[in-house]
C-alpha cells in the first residue's frame, strides 16, 4: 500500500516536473529547452524538386512527452527517418545526448538509446511473440556467429533476457500470447508488441510513429497508459500523431510541422488555437471571405497570365 502511494506521487511528480518546465516557455519554433536530449539543426531532405524536410532548429526536452503533429505530407515521418538513420539527410546536424548523430547508421542509432517504432507496424510475423521480444535485447553473446555454436556461452544470458521479456509482456498484457506467432496477433496487439519490443532495447528516447493508427478505441486507452508510463520510468517520448484528443491527453509539449518546416511549438492545451497552426491545417483564408481588393488582384493576375500566354502563341 505504502509503495503504491510513493509510486503515484513520483508519477505525478514527473508529470508536474514536465509541465513546470514548459510553463512559461515561448511559442516560437525552435525555442530552447533547459535540458534537451535531442537538438536538431538545419536538417534538409529533398526528393528531386520537393523539399520534404527543412527544419531550422528544434529541441526535445528530456523526460517529457513531446508530440509532433502536422497535416498530411508535412514531413513528419521523413523527419523521423532522418533522425533514426533510416534515410540520409541532404544536410544538417543533430545531436543526441550531446553526441553528433548525423550519418550514423540506423542500428547504431538504436544502440545509442534512440529507438523508434513504425507507422505500419513491423511485427516479425513468423517469429513467436517471445522471440520478437528477445530480439530487442542488446549485447547478446549468442548473436556472435562463433559463440552461437556453443550454447553454453549464451544460455545464461538468454534466461535473463527471457525473464525481462516476460515481465514486459505481462505489463503489456501479452503474456498469454507469448508462444503464438506475432503474425496471428490483432493490429492493436501488434502495436503493443512493437512498443514492448522497443523497450527491450532499454532506450532513453522512444520515438513512436503514429502509435494509435488503426487501433480500436478499447486498446487506445491502454496504449495511452503505456506511453505515459514511459515518462514515469524516466524515458523521453517523441511521437507522431494525428488524433488531437490523444495529443491533448498525454503530451507535455507539441511541435507542429507543415510543408517540411517546424512552424510552431506550444503546450497541447492552446496549440490548436495558434494562428499559424490553424493556417497550416485549414489554409489561411478558411474562415474569412476574400476582400474586394484581393479579389481584384487575383483577377488581374489571371488576366496577365492569360495575356502572356496569348502573346507567346502569336510569336510562334
Amino acid at each position: 500500500m505504502h509503495a503504491e502511494t510513493t509510486a503515484v506521487t513520483s508519477a505525478t511528480d514527473r508529470k508536474a516536473a514536465a509541465t513546470a518546465v514548459f510553463k512559461d516557455m515561448e511559442r516560437e519554433p525552435g525555442v530552447p529547452k533547459p535540458d534537451p536530449i535531442l537538438t536538431v539543426d538545419n536538417v534538409v531532405r529533398r526528393f528531386g524538386g520537393l523539399t520534404a524536410v527543412d527544419v531550422k532548429h528544434v529541441e526535445v526536452q528530456r523526460g517529457s512527452i513531446t508530440a509532433l503533429i502536422g497535416p498530411n505530407g508535412a514531413g513528419k515521418t521523413t523527419f523521423f527517418n532522418q533522425l533514426t538513420g533510416f534515410d540520409t539527410a541532404d544536410s544538417g546536424t543533430w545531436t543526441f545526448n550531446g553526441k553528433a548523430m548525423n550519418g550514423v547508421p540506423a542500428h547504431k542509432v538504436a544502440r545509442r538509446g534512440m529507438v523508434r517504432t513504425f507507422q505500419l507496424t513491423k511485427a516479425l510475423s513468423r517469429l513467436t511473440v517471445l522471440e520478437n521480444m528477445r530480439l530487442g535485447a542488446q549485447h547478446q553473446k549468442g548473436e556472435n556467429f562463433w559463440r552461437a555454436l556453443v550454447p553454453g556461452a549464451w544460455r545464461r544470458q538468454e534466461a535473463e533476457i527471457t525473464e525481462r521479456a516476460e515481465e514486459l509482456l505481462a505489463r503489456f498484457k501479452l503474456d498469454a500470447k507469448r508462444d503464438d506467432f506475432a503474425g496471428s496477433l490483432s493490429g492493436g496487439q501488434r502495436k503493443l508488441l512493437e512498443m514492448a519490443r522497443a523497450l527491450m532495447v532499454e532506450p532513453e528516447l522512444v520515438m513512436l510513429d503514429e502509435p494509435m493508427a488503426g487501433v480500436n478505441p478499447a486498446l487506445t486507452q491502454s496504449l495511452l497508459g503505456h506511453v505515459k508510463d514511459l515518462r514515469e520510468q524516466g524515458m523521453t517520448v517523441l511521437f507522431v500523431e494525428h488524433d488531437m484528443d490523444m495529443v491533448r491527453d498525454i503530451s507535455d509539449w507539441v511541435i507542429v510541422m507543415a510543408q517540411g518546416a517546424v512552424i510552431a511549438e506550444g503546450p497541447p492545451s492552446t496549440i490548436m488555437s495558434d494562428e499559424r497552426v490553424i493556417d497550416a491545417y485549414l489554409g489561411a483564408h478558411h474562415d474569412a471571405p476574400l476582400s474586394e481588393g484581393e479579389l481584384e488582384e487575383q483577377l488581374h493576375d489571371a488576366e496577365a497570365a492569360l495575356e502572356a500566354e496569348i502573346e507567346e502563341e502569336t510569336q510562334k
Partner: peptide, 12 residues
C-alpha cells in the same frame, strides 16, 4: 521477416 524492424533494434 523485416529488415527495418531488425535495424531499429540495433542489429547490423
Amino acid at each position: 521477416e523485416d529488415e527495418d524492424a531488425v535495424r531499429s533494434l540495433g542489429k547490423n
